[in-house]
Design a binder for these strands. Structure first.
Lengths: 148, 148
DNA sequence: CATTATTATTTTGATATTCAAAGTAGTTGG
DNA sequence: CCAACTACTTTGAATATCAAAATAATAATG
């Protein structure tokens, strides 16, 4: 790698490594100490409105249905999520958040908002667009490596 | 969040989620199928030269010494890493990579290089600097949330 | 309409990752 | 020398994960 590539790689890796960790720390400071980061991401994937099915949420999280099922068991036990059997097709489970789950969702959204605002601090509009372009580039690269 | 914040947040999250997953896929295509992503990151943290101690590597990876110890047991068993007891102070363990571990290190570096190059594709020098600034911003935000 | 196939989800058994706390071994200061 | 400290390892418990088997509901077919 050129020194510049190395430097940017290090920054990407640094940011990458810190993000989960900070989320973990923020979490432990909050009122939701009984949740792991994975569980928070599951709550996020379930989202605010009772619509998605188990399979859809599993797909969004890139885990098998079995993995999700176990994790939903825990979230139900802890009072953050609920299962809602579809009346149309009784095989299907719609997932939803409880009041406590929705509160958690909003707290985590607020954290992400602060993070994004900080990411963009001091950048003007064309600069923001450029950052978006770099992110799109990176996503394109990742998509290309997805299937093969 | 404003629509723009939401869009950039989604891109960050998208990139974030894909990276581990792609690394996992690349890995399974490679000759190192017996390693997990976590183990690769551990190999990376150990680095090419026999210098870092167990504690330093644990700190770099943000895991407890116990976690690292377990993980090093596995890497030693699989032939990627070795423990070198310090002669100066026999409590201290220096970690090193075997030939196989160093090979793995280089393969993973090459992947990162491709990733960074793709991230910066089509950007000129001032644009690259801007992206770096955004990354610095984000890191600054993360650092601020580190200690408190 | 009864049986078979398909679909959605859950359970189970196995392995990995992680932490906190207890344990082991080496060093240092009094 | 012994108490305190430091570096690391082990252990026990929780979560995370998958593949495969199990359950249950619906759809399709003869």
């Amino acid at each position: 790698m050129t020194p510049e590539e190395q430097r940017i790689n290090d920054k990407l890796v640094g940011v990458y490594n810190n993000i989960v960790q900070i989320e973990e720390i923020e979490l432990k400071k909050s009122q939701f100490k009984d949740l792991s980061i994975k569980e928070i991401h599951t709550i996020n994937a379930i989202g605010m409105y009772h619509r998605k099915t188990s399979s859809q949420v599993a797909q969004a999280l890139n885990v098998t249905p079995g993995t999700l099922s176990v994790s939903i068991n825990n979230l139900v036990r802890k009072g953050y999520a609920e299962r809602l059997r579809s009346e149309d097709d009784r095989r299907i489970i719609h997932l939803g958040l409880t009041r406590k789950g929705r509160l958690m969702y909003r707290v985590h959204q607020a954290f992400h908002r602060k993070m994004v605002q900080s990411f963009l601090r001091g950048l003007n509009e064309p600069e923001v667009q450029m950052v978006e372009r770099a992110l799109d580039n990176l996503q394109y690269f990742l998509d290309q490596h997805q299937g093969d």
